[in-house]
Design a protein around this nucleic acid. Structure first.
Lengths: 211, 211, 211, 211
DNA sequence: GATGAATGAGATTTCATTCAT
DNA sequence: TATGAATGAAATCTCATTCAT
């Protein structure tokens, strides 16, 4: 159903086809980590290769040994993120109308928020028109679909026979989850983490069964 | 409570303090309109002054006669947007638990979607970390707060005594409204406009009363 | 027959479509002149935009106001050169077997050598694999053909009925003219200008009638 | 007179002074061959060390074990080429005014064209200003002189007592030979190999005796 | 009011060469 | 002998902003 994002195969990184030794793998890891840091600090568009290499403490030349351009580094991060998100989508179990279901939902949302904490910038880069490059956009779309599909499955279990309406509901609820998480984590809105999770869980649960 | 965003006063445009003649007002209008067009076409970050002046069919020099920098043009657009949004916030009447309330909500959401169609890029620039400049960010925050406050007021009317919880609910619902509108309008998700409004109205209504 | 190289129309310079004022035309001229100088000094491949702008005494930014890249500057020069060469081709009158014909040939070759002195680098960039870009290569081919055609016409007049053989002869003689001119002008071979012209004229004349 | 180009002695390759074992000689050969391939494919200036080592399937480090820089690889190729060319120059026998002489000339030109097919890029790199490095330029000059000298010797035999004029004639004819060969081999001019040789032989022969 | 021209700091990318193993 | 990794100087190009007319 939800296939893993093996899109790495599509990209043509300078490293394609050659084995990396220990040293090389270490540098690659440094660059990816630096990429995340810079992305978090400066956002997608303001992120310069220069920031990344300074953070990773390597030379400019080295960067282009591992990625053929800036975009590609972010693609690599996106692939990581897509993988985690897809796993996350799979991990959502059945949601019952009772408090137990609410608790299950809340737990899952907690994982989501956690993942968002790490990959938020990447996710938002997908959501906005910030991403140039078809590959990356497609990957985002697929990941989004994967998570939506997981929600739809649970909605269908909970209240069967709602047909295509379930899709719309799932999309809308996911929209709320993503954006509310963004507001409350990235911004200094001052909501408590727990309260925020309670609210989210309740509203989503209500979205499933309420009315 | 929600004051009108006369923030234009805060900015220091080159036009400050002097009256614009008919010609000048026309050029200003051309630039603002071009700004919206370019923003819509290329997004906030990719939008270049060059695009704007070419679209408005004026020279670079002229641009800086009206705005002291790129940011300021977008601020001006943001002020327009904030005004409309604040009006919109005010226009939300009481929401009852019955079908009439649902219909009222739906109608209001339709206005929102319409406004979003025109100012989406500006709004998203606020929501993301795309905006550099305190002034602009504050304006966004204030507008966001205005709309949230309108929702809170209606929630309080509908189910009084929920206290600060209403704030969180309102924020979450607004998050859903904004993002879902974005998905279904900007992206080619293929949801019908009406169906989408139905979904949104139902979920928000359920958020108010449901469970 | 030999059409003028209006290839300028094909290129998409930043200046396309807009009128240049006096100041602009002056700068453009400065850049073209600087282009020739730099080309002559450093050769096609070693020529850097930086050299050009330093020679022309303008900023980097200015350069890209007139040409969208390095290649385009050289295209512009090539167009100039192609025009001169085509004119030159047209200027070759009938060549008779007697001394008068020899003198006519010699005079024409002198013009050629003169033109080569100015545009040698451009011409050689065509002749070698140095040129990237289809447009430019085609322009070179066409110019080469134009000059060959002029020679063919004279050969046909001189000794009619030799058919396609005339083409080959013309190409070979032009090859000699170009390369020998290059050797004796660019290199310090130490041949006298006049002696060199005598030799060239004699050998070409012999190529026309000899045997 | 024409000494063999033992110029390798002049260069300071990393391999100088030490004997190469079988393995080493094999690698060296691979590099030289790869050098020719890359030169042919991309031309002198576009040829990167990276291309060479990828073609030869060795590492960058290995390259610099055999050559102290890029230039030196091309020097080595040039030495090979110079050797062949010098041999070629020696192989030109007497040229008589009759058809036999023409045939002899044609045969020699065929060898030249063949050699040019293999070393064309190197030769052209000499002829143009493409070569940086005194050594290499000198080698080219010497080779050129060797071939010219061979031609001069034959011209002097054929029509003695023309003095320094023979030098100029030889240079001009060689110019024609080189460039015409280039045109007809490297470019897709569409001349037949045999016809081309006929033309060249006839014009050179005419250059020797004609008029 | 308006314009075309110029600027220059800053960003990305390439590639010959050196290094450590 | 050989290798993969790293380097960094240099080159190209962009674009917000200022200037002179």
């Amino acid at each position: 159903m939800v296939e893993r994002s093996d899109d790495a195969a599509v990209m043509t990184a300078p490293t394609d086809g050659r084995e990396l030794r220990r040293q090389g793998r270490k540098t690659m890891a440094k660059l990816l980590e630096a990429g995340m840091t810079v992305l978090a600090e400066r956002g997608y568009h303001a992120a310069r290769v220069d920031d990344v290499v300074r953070t990773a403490d390597v030379s400019h030349g080295t960067f282009y040994l591992y990625f053929s351009n800036k975009e590609e580094l972010f693609q690599a991060l996106a692939v990581q993120c897509a993988d985690e998100m897809t796993d996350l989508a799979r991990s959502l179990g059945p949601v019952t109308p009772d408090d137990e279901g609410l608790a299950a939902l809340r737990a899952w949302l907690a994982s989501f928020v956690d993942c968002y904490g790490r990959y938020g910038v990447v996710i938002r880069a997908w959501m906005e028109d910030q991403v140039t490059g078809r590959e990356l956009a497609r990957l985002g779309g697929r990941t989004f679909t994967a998570v939506t599909a997981a929600l739809v499955a649970r909605i269908d279990e909970a209240r069967p026979g709602r047909g295509p309406q379930a899709e719309l509901d799932a999309a809308a609820l996911l929209a709320m989850i993503e954006r509310f998480t963004y507001f409350t984590t990235s911004r200094s809105v001052g909501f408590e983490h727990d309260t925020m999770l309670d609210t989210l869980a309740r509203l989503v649960h209500r979205g499933f069964f309420g009315g």
